[in-house]
Simulated scan of single mutants.
Amino acid sequence: MISRVTQQTVQRSTLANLQLNLSTMAGMQAKMSSGKKITVPSDDPAAASDVLRLRGELRTQTQYVRNADDGGSWLTTVDTALQSSLSALRRARDLTVQGGNGALGTSSREALATEIDGVRDTLLAQANTTFLGRNVFAGTSDAGTAFTKDAVTGRYAWTGTAAGTVDRRINATTTVRVDADGAVAFGDDAAGDTSVFALLDTISTTLRAGGDATASLGAIDTRMEKMLTQLAGVGARHGQVLTAQTELKSTQLTTKAQLSGIEDIDLAETILQLQAQQTAYQGALGAAAKVLQPTLLDFLR
Rank of each mutant, 00 (worst) to 15 (best):
K36N: 10
G261N: 08
G71W: 12
G286P: 11
A127E: 03
D201G: 00
T246R: 08
G139Y: 12
M32V: 07
F299K: 07
Q63C: 09
R169Q: 15
T9H: 02
T205W: 14
V136Q: 02
T229H: 03
T205D: 15
G71Q: 06
R109K: 11
I38W: 05
L285P: 14
G233F: 01
T202W: 00
A198T: 06
L200P: 13
T80L: 03
V51H: 04
R53K: 09
R168T: 11
I203R: 01
G211M: 04
Q282T: 12
R12M: 12
I116F: 01
T173L: 12
V51G: 03
N171A: 12
P45L: 00
A268Y: 02
A127W: 01
V166Y: 00
G283C: 08
Q126D: 04
A163W: 10
Q19L: 07
D117R: 07
T77P: 05
V40T: 08
A289L: 07
S23A: 09
A190Q: 13
A284C: 10
S13W: 13
T6Y: 10
D142V: 08
D264Q: 10
G164V: 02
D189M: 11
Q252N: 14
S23K: 06
T24I: 08
A163C: 14
T205P: 11
T140P: 13
A68K: 07
N17W: 00
T24R: 10
F197H: 09
F197E: 06
A113N: 06
D50C: 13
A68H: 01
A111G: 15
R155K: 15
G99M: 04
L253R: 13
A219R: 07
F197C: 04
L300R: 00
A232E: 04
S108L: 11
D150S: 12
V152Q: 10
Q7M: 11
